[in-house]
Simulated assay, not measured.
Amino acid sequence: MRILDMKTFVVLARNRHFGRTAEELNTTQPAISSRLAAIEREFACRLVERGEGRFALTLDGEHVLRHFETILENIETLRGEIGEGAGHAPGPLRIGAIDSVSSTWMPLLIDSLHHTFPNLKIEMTVDGTKPLLTGMRKGDFDLVFCLHPVLDDGFRNYTACVFQMTWAGSPKLIDPDRTYSVAALADMPIISFPKDSPPYQMVAPYFHDEQVLASKLTSCNSLYAIINLLIDGFGVGAVPSVTISRELSSGLLNPIKVAKRFPPMPIIASYQASTQQDFIRRVVRRARATAEHYCAKVNPAHAWID
């Protein structure tokens, strides 16, 4: 039996969709159906129940899936062991991250990966949590760092690190000696992330819990743009402390003393668990070590490992 057929079945079981599987494997739906049929002929049993939009593995299918995953994992382990000295990597590695990660410890991770895998090609995408999760489910990424986990079958998740959020604003707006209540913040123009984003979903309850509504709220989908708007005095905002450390130390922004602390923001890593398993595990180990190293260097109140 071909490795390609086993990989096809594992990817199909994860996607539960012939079209998405064909797209991920850069082939056609008839080719996927043909590979599945070949496996079913090999074992003389039905592995998938499908029809009328329904897709489910049979009991035999679940059994075959577990064995195929083990076989593919062993193959990847063997490849890793053989290619360890030469920095073997199947590549390209497709990483997605929100901008608070890309602007902090992601460059350190990329440098570490290039040191471990000198010939590794890395495709980096910076986007919001929602499109990153969508892309992960479609097979566009091998590893993403965002604010929510991928809870579907075939994925694994862990908390990469935690970022503390800081209310900040231009010295033109902020009195550094004053402690601002939630109501006082709500009276000021507020710069926030888009309404469908996890950070915004943290901002809204911050005010609603105190029965205060922010009357002047501007949303933006770019952390860099939000920071520039804060510097220019267009409003105040809650952003990860580590992303504005230079602006705070230079006086371009002032931290706001608040009566109610803004909750910290966990960064969640999600990765595919059914393909290139040993390689992805090695990448994840590098990512864990990089995040830990970064958090050890910065203010422990601003970023930490949970």
Rank of each mutant, 00 (worst) to 15 (best):
I3R: 11
K7T: 14
T8W: 00
L12M: 08
N15Q: 14
R16S: 06
F18E: 07
F18D: 00
G19L: 12
G19Q: 11
T21Y: 00
A22H: 02
A22W: 03
E23Q: 15
L25D: 04
T28L: 00
P30D: 08
A31I: 13
L36C: 09
I39L: 06
I39T: 05
F43L: 15
A44V: 10
R46E: 09
E49F: 02
R50E: 09
G51P: 03
G51E: 08
E52A: 11
E52K: 12
E52H: 12
E52V: 05
G53H: 12
R54T: 09
F55D: 03
E62Q: 13
V64W: 10
L65Q: 00
R66K: 15
R66P: 01
H67A: 09
F68A: 00
F68R: 04
T70F: 13
L72N: 02
N74R: 10
T77I: 14
L78A: 14
L78F: 13
G80K: 03
G80Q: 07
E81L: 14
H88N: 06
P90R: 13
P92M: 02
V101I: 15
S102E: 05
P107G: 04
L108C: 00
D111M: 09
D111L: 08
H114P: 00
H115G: 08
F117N: 06
L120H: 11
K121N: 08
M124T: 14
T125W: 01
D127T: 01
G128Q: 15
L133E: 02
L133A: 03
L147R: 02
H148D: 14
P149N: 05
V150M: 10
L151F: 09
D152P: 08
F155M: 04
R156N: 13
R156L: 12
N157K: 05
Y158A: 12
Y158F: 15
C161D: 13
W167H: 01
A168C: 13
G169Y: 07
G169Q: 06
P171M: 12
K172P: 01
D175W: 11
P176V: 02
D177T: 11
D177R: 07
S181T: 15
S181I: 11
A184K: 00
A186G: 15
D187H: 00
F193L: 10
P194E: 11
K195T: 12
S197E: 09
P198C: 09
A204H: 11
P205I: 07
F207H: 00
F207G: 08
H208C: 05
Q211Y: 11
S215A: 15
L217Y: 06
S222C: 03
L223R: 02
L223W: 01
A225Y: 09
I227A: 05
L229M: 15
L230M: 02
D232R: 12
G233L: 07
A238C: 10
A238M: 04
P240Q: 07
S249T: 03
N254H: 14
P255V: 07
V258K: 02
V258C: 09
K260W: 01
F262W: 07
P263R: 08
A269T: 01
A269V: 07
S270P: 07
Y271T: 02
Q276A: 12
D278S: 06
R281S: 14
V284N: 03
R285V: 04
R285S: 12
R285G: 08
A287D: 04
A289D: 15
H293S: 15
Y294N: 06
A296K: 11
A301S: 10
H302R: 01
A303K: 01
D306H: 10
